[in-house]
């Protein structure tokens, strides 16, 4: 009855629509349903399992050997996108299990493709500390070598100082303890006028000072084999995963007079010259900003661009920005517009 009501063209339309509906939705996936699951949350460094179960949409039977691709959505160094984590095949129960190591703190967004519409999983990772530890700076017994060297050198110098003391004894002409006959003779010698401040004492004193300096050097020396975290360094910051840092200004060394002159200096100390060239002429890394308008320079500098860091009001104030622009204007004139 329905068919006669539709007529020839109606049936054709329905058939075409039917084929279109069948043909859409992917090569093999039009008749699959995919259920994905992941733990509620995870700890950093843990390897969790993402499971995906594939059933045939029509029959409800599990599908074996279906290939699913897993992606993770990340951002790094101003580049955002998906990392392909890997693939998993479903087993005879239609279950695909993918082992995923949690290396990122925050919300993980996993996209699973291959089952028609991509499925998206999202779960937070909040617990965890440093995972990768560099082997640099690790020693067996921290500082032991230094103490051994100190002891050996110290022992040698102590013996030399003892020798020095013997020589002082020579100069004072004092007899060894307990020898009566000698003591009498040397008493006579001693009254002939000996002074404390003679060569031998001074030389021994010098030796003590040198030995002290050497011991001080050894004790102050940093203890790690690879000079990790060396004493006396002022590093502006260590790069932390969670941190957000400004590009540091290393400061102008001289006082330049004219605005453009200052701008030329700031162009170097803020790192602009690194990518754009000392004369703002452009380099392999970045184009010349000399022909840009004030508004464009201001906008790109304040907001950043892929490959270019941003400089906020606190990091690079408006006065400095104007000075840099004055330098760019001068360069533009030199370059001929």
């Amino acid at each position: 009855m329905t068919w006669r009501r539709l007529g020839r063209w109606g049936t054709l339309a329905i058939l075409v629509l039917g084929f279109l509906l069948l043909g859409s939705g992917g090569a093999f996936a039009d008749h699959w349903t995919v259920e994905v699951s992941a733990p509620e949350e995870g700890a950093l460094g843990e390897t969790i399992q993402l499971t995906a179960t594939v059933h045939d949409a029509a029959t409800g039977e599990p599908v074996e050997g279906a290939e699913l691709v897993f992606f993770s959505s990340v951002t790094f160094a101003g580049v955002g996108g998906d990392i392909e984590l890997g693939e998993a095949l479903t087993n005879d129960l239609g279950v695909a299990v993918f082992d995923y190591e949690l290396r990122k703190l925050g919300t993980h967004t996993i996209t699973i493709e291959g089952g028609g519409e991509p499925n998206i999983l999202s779960f937070p990772v909040t617990i965890g500390g440093q995972l990768y530890r560099s082997p640099a700076g690790i020693s067996l017994i921290p500082g032991a070598g230094g103490w051994v060297v100190t002891l050996v050198i110290g022992a040698i110098w102590v013996i030399m100082i003892i020798v020095g003391v013997s020589v002082v004894r020579v100069s004072r002409g004092s007899p060894p303890a307990g020898n009566e006959a000698e003591a009498e003779e040397d008493e006579r010698e001693r009254s002939a006028g000996t002074k404390w401040l003679n060569t031998a004492t001074m030389v021994t004193a010098v030796m003590v000072v040198v030995a002290g300096g050497i011991v001080a050097l050894l004790i102050r020396s940093p203890n790690t084999h690879h000079n990790r975290d060396p004493v006396g360094y002022d590093r502006s910051a260590v790069a932390f995963v969670e941190g957000a840092y400004a590009y540091p200004d290393f400061g102008l060394a001289d006082d330049a007079a004219a605005e453009a002159e200052i701008g030329r200096g700031l162009f170097v100390t803020f790192g602009c010259a690194g990518c754009h060239g000392v004369d703002a002429e452009g380099t392999t890394t970045a184009k010349s900003p000399a022909s840009a308008s004030y508004d464009w320079v201001r906008q790109v500098t304040r907001n950043g661009q892929p490959g270019m860091p941003s400089y906020s009001e606190q990091e690079l104030n408006d006065t400095q920005l104007n000075e840099i622009f004055a330098f760019l204007a001068e360069t533009r004139g030199e370059l001929g517009g």
Binding site: V74, F76, A77, G78, I83, E101, R103, K104, Q130, L131, Y132, S236, A237, A239, V241, G243, A244, Y245, A246, Y247, P248, G271, G274, C275, T284, T285, A286, G307, M308, P309
Partner: peptide, 30 residues
Amino acid sequence: PDMVRAGTLPYCIQACPNQAIYYGDLEEDI
């Protein structure tokens, strides 16, 4: 180090026309 801490990539990575050089972090494995 000054550039990567500020969130951009080193000069050599930016300049390679074939994008042959990758810069990454072993801690986040990326």
